[in-house]
Design a protein around this nucleic acid. Structure first.
Length: 891
DNA sequence: CCGGTCTAAAGAACG
DNA sequence: TTTAGACCGG
């Protein structure tokens, strides 16, 4: 058992019996004696869910559509395995992607099974389980078991050093870019030797592979690894050490994977290694697969008497012990992380990877209204690469409204209208917490925030930078890291001159060189240098102090409680003082955060375990008390649900995003469509989509055309609504419905869905007149016409500020670009009839400085400057604006 | 070492 | 338009 240290008991099963509490065990036994009295935990499952829970043996793929009870199935399945005694908690490997999901599973299993979950050591994220494996077998990967986990920021800094060490220009070859490349390789499970020649050549004049190698070597000397290594190292260890792998084969009787559609190639390989059995599929009692000594093959069959169907299946299992009991749960239609390395193919070819797999579809949706489901299903049906599921619901309540599509003139009006609609809901006694605005790109948030601040409407931004990514937290952690792991050069470099001690670039360079020459960590090298006379007095004294500090702290590590030590470190290093003396607006907040950091340390037993959790699982807490509208990206909305959902920005170029189309082509478009599907299916009752005619992108006003996804919504489930403006008189419109009633779709314009849109004539003045005839369908209603007429005339109200307004930011320091005043309108553009539109490269403008031009929104003006196709124009009335040259005409 | 100035880039983000 | 990062001068 190489790699298992004494203090990490590994196959330490409780002797007596599975740890399911007696209550559950009793219920499980009752279940076995007949099907009439199913245990409580199975009650309330629909037939498909129940099948997914009870099909414990063999490979199973559960295709769980949005809102079909996926988590319930997963947790109940684990509870079922435990309750029926098929496995001990420690014999179940259950992986998720996020800490949140892992946490939720833990608590929900806890509710089902009682306290027994405490014994589920292998329920966690891919990464946390990866660390666990790697700590056990660190030496097989050339690491010590106290290795450090570097985050993205550390990695980039490290790579930058390497690039410079290679004598390369670090501006021409940005470290960030290379970090992403490495990440991509690791997502595919590729080491330096495995990467494609082309990839290796693409960076740093063909030095890509070398750099990658140097990077890995550097990590090893630092006794560190990056996130990707948490998967790749175990894979390599398993491959090179069959005996180690075999132990895990024996251990894990059941494997469960959440969100399987999001797995990347490395995760897939990792799972394959753990799931594969040397002679899988063949009934066998081969010695190497026998359970560990001192244990019966299967408690359930061995220990319980009644020969029921369940126990029979168990005894069969005991014979075919090498069968792969892997259950993957996911939804191919919600695969939205291809850009992060996820391989939707993993889920699509599950039955090829695991022959004889049972595929179970969960299509009964418990979340949304029939209209919402209808809209979402119809949209996603436009994708080709999918299993094909259709969500359905029994709900058919007359008061359920259709999906609302709104048009607005520009993004300001959009934010205004959404705000009004939210207030209207609020007057109907809806909680703000039950509402969410889901955007495609985070820069869209800005406009809503501005608006809500003006309105005094509480909101909360979810996502964004996390707690431990803040400057002060990262600094503090760097101190702790050096104390805990003296070889952590990156951390050392980060704080050696914090607060400023006069240790500039030159001194650090010198420490670096000394460390290299002596082959010791920088901390040690610094200590040596401080004693030598190679430095000038000033840096020498400073360095001496630093190394004395660390020496003292490292000694204290063994004797002092870690929270106390942490406080001492921050005090003695002068770090807290540094912020106390800082008079910037952020300083008090930073001090507060440091306090919070110390507070959160109390939950861990040692500095080391705390550091590991910080790297892997630390989230910013959010304030659920406050009633506030939720604002987040579509990506971070996956897995959530809200009573009322607003989806702004459904325009070509933004959604689907142009870059997704340019880089991903057809599959990029399909992923965008899945993202749209995710957005639609977040809504339980009310769903509002918005598109605008004008949006400012990177400071330039551009006209936009409605998203093709709008055209893909079925008319039967959609109605076009008047946009909220000052003419609407929204106050009491909900329930009564001032939205224009649709007439039932005739499907006009379906033949050429992407060439022209039935929204063309309403989204803006992009050639509406000539087109409207061809699209006289549902949307040619009086309400719609009115909305159009009003759209251009929308006026500002006198918005007063409300007292008690609160804003919460989860994370901080958003860096979104925003929109200012001024609007423009534009002539229409067409996109390719092909599904994938290409962006147009900047062409030099045909205009010259001084030309007199006309702009639909701003009127006449003179061009004062030209950059490529971007014009700066002094308008007679509207002042100076920057617009794209396609949007003006010569006068 | 600090602070002002210039430039380039600006999609989503898990651990 | 906004922003972070590099760059330069004091």
């Amino acid at each position: 058992m190489s790699g298992f240290s004494e203090d990490m008991p590994f196959f330490d099963e409780p002797n007596a019996r599975p740890t399911a509490p007696s209550g559950i065990a009793a219920r499980a036994m009752a279940a076995r004696s007949g099907h009439i009295n199913a245990p409580d935990y199975l009650k309330g499952l629909n037939p498909e869910q129940r099948l997914a829970v009870e099909t414990t043996e063999g490979p199973v793929l559960v295709l769980a559509g949005a809102g079909t009870g996926k988590t319930r199935v997963l947790t109940t399945r684990i509870a079922h395995i435990l309750a029926t005694g098929k496995a001990f908690p420690s014999q179940i490997l259950a992986v998720t992607f996020t800490n949140k999901a892992a946490r939720e599973m833990k608590t929900r299993i806890g509710h089902l099974v009682g306290e027994a979950v405490e014994g589920m050591p292998w329920l966690g994220t891919f990464h946390s389980i990866g660390v666990k494996l790697l700590r056990r077998h660190a030496e097989l990967a050339g690491l010590r078991s106290d290795f450090t986990i570097l985050d993205t920021d550390d990695v980039v800094r490290l790579i930058k050093q390497l690039i410079q060490a290679e004598g390369l220009d670090d501006k021409r070859w940005p470290a960030k870019q290379f970090a992403q490349m490495i990440d991509g390789w690791k997502n595919k499970g590729q080491g330096p030797a495995d990467i494609a020649e082309g990839d290796a050549r693409a960076f740093a004049n063909g030095k890509g592979r070398e750099l990658y190698k140097a990077y890995q070597a550097r990590l090893q000397t630092l006794n560190a690894c990056d996130f990707g290594d948490l998967l790749c190292h175990p894979i390599r260890i398993f491959r090179a050490n069959p005996d180690v792998l075999k132990e895990y084969h024996k251990r894990f009787k059941y494997i469960l994977v959440d969100e399987y559609q999001d797995t990347n190639t490395a995760q897939y390989m990792w799972l394959r290694l753990l799931a594969q059995r040397p002679d899988a599929g063949r009934a066998s009692t081969s010695t190497d697969l026998r359970p560990a000594e001192g244990r019966k093959p299967d408690r359930a069959s061995a220990g319980q008497a009644a020969p029921t169907e369940a126990s029979e299946r168990n005894s069969r299992t005991a014979v075919i012990d090498n069968k792969v009991n892997i259950c993957c749960v996911g939804d191919d239609d919600q695969s939205i992380y291809g850009w992060r390395g996820a391989e939707i193919d993993n889920i699509l070819r599950f039955d090829k990877d695991f022959p004889g797999a049972t595929i179970i579809r969960l299509e009964r949706n418990y979340r949304s209204t029939a209209h919402i489901l209808g809209a979402a299903s119809h949209l996603i049906a436009h994708n080709e690469g999918r299993f094909g599921k259709t969500l359905f619901t029994d709900r058919d309540e007359p008061e359920d409204g259709k999906v609302h599509v709104h048009a607005a003139w520009d993004s300001e009006e959009e934010a205004r209208a959404v705000g009004e609609t939210i207030e209207a809901y609020q007057r109907q006694k809806h909680n703000l917490n039950d509402m969410a605005i889901l955007v495609r790109a985070s820069f869209q948030m800005r406009e809503f925030e501005d608006r809500f601040v003006t309105l005094g409407l509480n909101y909360r931004v979810i996502g964004g930078p996390r707690f431990y990514e803040r400057l002060e937290i990262r600094d503090a952690l760097a101190f702790f890291r050096v104390v805990a792991q003296g070889a952590d050069d990156l951390a050392f470099e980060r704080i050696v001159n914090v607060p400023k001690r006069g240790l500039g670039e030159a001194t650090i360079r010198q420490i670096h060189d000394t460390a290299r020459a002596l082959r010791v960590p920088m901390l040690e090298a610094a200590a040596k240098l401080a004693e030598s006379d190679e430095l000038k007095p000033k840096p020498r004294a400073a360095l001496r102090e630093v190394s004395a500090n660390f020496e003292r702290w490292q000694k204290a590590l063994e004797t002092t409680p870690h929270t106390e030590l942490a406080e001492t470190i921050l005090e003695e290093s002068g770090y807290t003082d540094m912020w106390k003396n800082d008079r910037s607006v952020e300083a008090p907040g930073r001090l507060e955060n440091l306090k919070e950091l110390i507070r959160s340390m109390e939950e861990y037993e040692s500095l080391r375990s705390f550091l590991e959790h910080v790297a892997l699982v630390m989230d910013a807490e959010q304030n659920a008390e406050l009633d506030a509208v939720n604002i987040m990206t579509l990506h971070s909305a996956k897995g959530l649900e809200f009573e009322t959902v607003f989806l702004p920005g459904w325009e070509e170029g933004l959604f689907p995003h142009q870059r997704a189309l340019d880089e991903g082509g057809r599959s990029g478009l399909e992923e965008e469509r899945r993202l749209a599907y995710v957005g639609l299916t977040r809504a339980k009752k009310n769903l509002h989509l918005w598109f605008v005619s004008n949006r400012r992108i990177h400071g330039l006003w551009q006209s936009t055309i409605p998203s093709r996804f709008l055209d893909e919504l079925p008319e039967a489930h959609v109605e076009v609504a008047e946009s909220g403006n000052s003419y609407g008189g929204y106050g009491n419109s909900y329930g009564g419905g001032s939205f224009a009633p649709g007439r039932g779709g005739q499907g006009a314009g379906r033949q050429n869905p992407y060439g022209a849109s039935r929204f063309d004539s309403v989204g803006g003045n992009n050639g509406g007149a000539e087109k409207s005839g061809a699209f006289s369908n549902t949307y040619a209603t009086p309400g719609w016409q009115r909305a159009q007429a009003n759209r251009t005339e929308a006026t500002d109200r006198n918005w007063g500020s409300r007292s008690g307004h609160q804003v919460e930011r989860i994370g901080y320091g958003e860096t979104d670009s925003g929109y200012g005043a001024g609007r423009t309108s534009v002539k229409g553009r067409t996109i390719d009839g092909e599904l994938v539109a290409k962006s147009v490269a900047d062409k030099p403008s045909a205009f010259s400085v001084g030309d007199r031009v006309f702009h639909q929104k701003f009127g006449n003006g003179n061009i004062s400057a030209i950059e490529g196709n971007k014009l700066t124009i002094d308008f007679d009335k509207a002042g100076q604006k920057r617009v794209l040259d396609g949007f003006v005409a010569a006068v």
